[in-house]
Design a binder for these strands. Structure first.
Lengths: 231, 231
DNA sequence: TCATCGATGTCGCGC
DNA sequence: GCGCGACGTCGATGA
């Protein structure tokens, strides 16, 4: 990994065309050839970048560029597309290289898949007498997270989100429309389950006769641990 | 901006829980307090990060941590949420600080707005006899990209996307529902126009009687250039 | 390889 | 500040 702090300007052409006026920035060149151009603020997203696979060609500036104070020109070309990042370097304040080695990567806990798994295992959270039909029930427009049956034998389609937004309600609505066309399933009831359900989503769901279920991840995981210990 | 290259492990708790095993990484501390933790590969997204506003507290490791080789512990706490990033530093290979100043930011040349502009100028792409009513036709739930009239005098609402996804069809459906309540406009036909239309989106659109139009950006721009030269 | 979908999405605009 | 749509979205997963 090479770290360069320099005054520079940049120009990107590819899926769009954009440019960066002259300013001091951090340039990171990773081992895989990818390049990041960071300012001293904002979020984790660089101002400009090139994803791997790509290659950087360094050349001396032409006379006109020298006149403007350019000391070096980097052309970062993507290997599989015509995306290109051209960087003109002026004064270089820092330049160092480091061997980082391979990274074991991030390990995550508690995503939507886990919520689905937990709810499938604790399907009675939908109400007493509920039984699991299957997870990822496939339809023509995508998989329903959980399909269940209630105590009375009615079908229940469950959409699970970490954060219950209006989009999730729309998604579940589409599934319900489709499922209710199937004479073997109809009537299908909908349940929108999430760790947190936004007020607008709750209003929309309620208006459409869709039930809302707030999932307590920690509690569900706790129960799951207890279950695990039983076997 | 502070740049640190060090062997470190990290733990993030917040919207999810995750951890990074011990490895050598780049830590970037920006002027606004945000922290990025980069490996020497992958994309521009850091392995872990904390967005501003946040503050970092540095403390000495406890005896147990010293035993494990930890030399310093950083606790990066978000100011407005309970998101927290805890980093244990081991050997530090590099540590430097740089004053970058304020960045003027990226200047983009749009593609999205351009598509709308081009289709408005080439409205006959909707079919012979079509005329433009107006772009960005305002409704209570947002602007319809293009409102047009077909050869028979019927109203046509057009939703334009670069990538035609199922969400875009939903959006257009909402507009059509609303527009069709207006007795002066109804019946309003829908056209979903995009550079690329996903199969599921096409199925949904067709099912709802919405037409699909694939836009050839380069061809449209070419025509536009020719038009430009004529005037 | 291609398509779909989630994301600690982030970013920017309008209300 | 919130809601909503776009993104050079990226990245994982299943067909």
């Amino acid at each position: 990994m090479r770290l360069v702090v320099a005054r520079c300007s940049a120009r990107y052409t590819g899926r769009l065309t954009a440019h960066l006026p002259l300013a001091t920035r951090l340039l990171v060149v990773k081992a895989d050839g990818s390049v990041l151009l960071h300012s001293d603020g904002g979020s984790y997203k660089p101002l400009n970048w090139m994803s791997p696979p790509c290659a950087t060609a360094v050349r001396a500036p032409d006379a006109e560029a020298v006149e403007r104070g350019v000391t070096e020109v980097w052309t970062v070309q993507h290997q599989k597309s015509d995306d290109r990042l051209e960087i003109e370097l002026h004064e270089v304040a820092h330049d160092s290289a480091h061997d980082l080695g391979v990274d074991p990567g991030l390990i995550k806990d508690g995503v939507e898949a886990h919520l689905q798994e937990l709810l499938a295992a604790q399907i009675e959270l939908l109400g007493a007498g509920h039984t699991l039909v299957r997870r990822e029930y496939m339809t023509a427009i995508g998989p329903v997270d959980i399909l269940a049956r209630d105590g009375a034998g009615g079908t229940v389609a469950v959409e699970i989100k970490r954060r219950g937004d209006i989009d999730g309600v729309e998604q579940l609505t589409r599934y319900l429309d489709l499922l209710n066309r199937d004479p073997l399933l109809t009537p299908v009831r909908g349940v929108f389950a999430a760790q947190e359900i936004k007020p607008q989503a709750r209003v929309l769901a309620t208006d459409r006769g869709i039930g809302c279920l707030v999932l307590d991840y920690d509690a569900m995981r706790g129960v799951d641990d207890v279950d695990s210990r039983l076997f």
